[in-house]
Nucleic acid binder design. Sequence first.
RNA 1: GGGAGCGUAGCUCAGCUGGUAGAGCAAGUGACUCUUAAUCACUGGGUCCAGGGUUCGAAUCCCUGCGCUCCUACCA
Length: 483
Amino acid sequence: METNEYRDQRLASMQNLAAMGFKPYGSKFPHEDIAHARDSFVEGETRRLAGRLLMIRRMGKMNFCTMNDGTGRFQLIFKRDELPDNLFQAFKQLNLGDIIGAEGVLFTTQRGEKSLVVKDWTILAKALEQPPEKFHGLADQEERYRRRYVDLMTNDETRERFFTRSRILMETRKYLWSRGFLEVETPILQSQAGGAAAKPFHTHFNALDRDMVLRIAPELYLKRLLVGGMNKVFELGKDFRNEGIDRSHNPEFTVLEVYEAYGDRTSMEEIIEGLIPHLCDTVIGSRKIAYGESGEIIDFNTPYRRVAYKDLVRETMGEDWFDLDFAAQLEKAKAKSAATGVNLELDGVSDSLMLTREVYDKLIEKNLRQPTFVTRLPREFVPLAKACEDDPTLVDVFEFVVGGRELCPGYTEQNNPIEQRKAFEIQAGEDVEKVDEDFISALECGMPPTGGLGIGVDRLVMLLTGCDGIRDVVLFPQLKSDK
RNA sequence: GGGAGCGUAGCUCAGCUGGUAGAGCAAGUGACUCUUAAUCACUGGGUCCAGGGUUCGAAUCCCUGCGCUCCUACCA
């Protein structure tokens, strides 16, 4: 890697340019975006553009280049008649990948290509490395993730996808601000991990000589703000979970958590039904989105279906499902499994609750293609939410499911400190230290009834951009180090 | 964690049952004043992922390691 023929040639051409009076790494160059130049094209007007050379078509006395500045591509024409001799000679020293600034006159070729006839130009950055092949670009997935800058400079779809991601973040903020929510930041560096059941990353704080963890969720701090009277808050930031990496999991990922005091689960449903169409309208331009390899159409027009967990199970497994004993349910589940060809994992399943959950996960959730709120879950699944008022065996939450996957949960939050402590203790088992005493004491000051919501932003971006891998929507996904 | 596949020129990829490595693009030189994946001619370019083994001989077969991809399992 230290030396190769391409690098040597480019170093030589760099020296040649220097000898001709150019600075191979130039300075500030005021210019307009290519997208703007294209939109405001007026034949014969003088314009200044800057960007990277993607293609060079040399024809001797008239040469064509394709330049990319991140907002689009534009053709530059270097013509012997139109350039001072030194600038025409120096053009021969340019290579693919070099970044230049050019001033010239807008011109449309006979084939109708909008172009800039260059009258003056300068080099702004010499590229010593060879860019990937012009037609296929960088195709190797590993290289695209490891060297995202090369992927971005050559693959327009990649760049477009991250523009979209950025717009989704901005419009999410705008939407929540417009509804009176305040954006806040809470600690990422924590002394104990809470708000979720996940293994944290450990680190060490030298000044205090204390072990710390990176947060697995902002939840417990955001609720402290509700106690303090910040009634409508959201945080958009990173969580870290020390678990596996696969197509839908990156160890650091972006979450949006939203809390609304004096609200409940249904307030959060309203936010989802407002936010998602807002993102579709402002960022994507359509409420119907092709999803996954099948390209199935997901329709984000509201209202979304709301259905109780048990009703959903009955739809698939029969009206009598919850009246059957465990043995009879097992029989029925096996029959259904055989009939649908879906394998149920029944090894550790010892009661009706677990069996029903397995049936839901494998046979039911995957078939919920259009946006659906699954509500009223058994309380055992969600220990930190509040029970339904009419049925203490159920919790007042939803799982928002799209395309057969859970996109986000929403809760009527537990604000009873006594119940919260019980739930913590059950969750923590013997490990008493895991109970967050300061959080309990915050609840003991009184937290208003509250609705809460947590969205995996990466997965939201995947859904809206039609990607089926988290690495495609994270600029620098975690990879093992190569050598 | 289990299964399958992949790793060859800067990039995209061929390379059959083992016989000393090939194309296109890119690069260098030359021709060409409307090209646009420009075209034409000539030229250069390789630790075939790493290490070991089998063999007279390995990119090719076997083993180990590293990395990636897909499937599957797990995961608030």
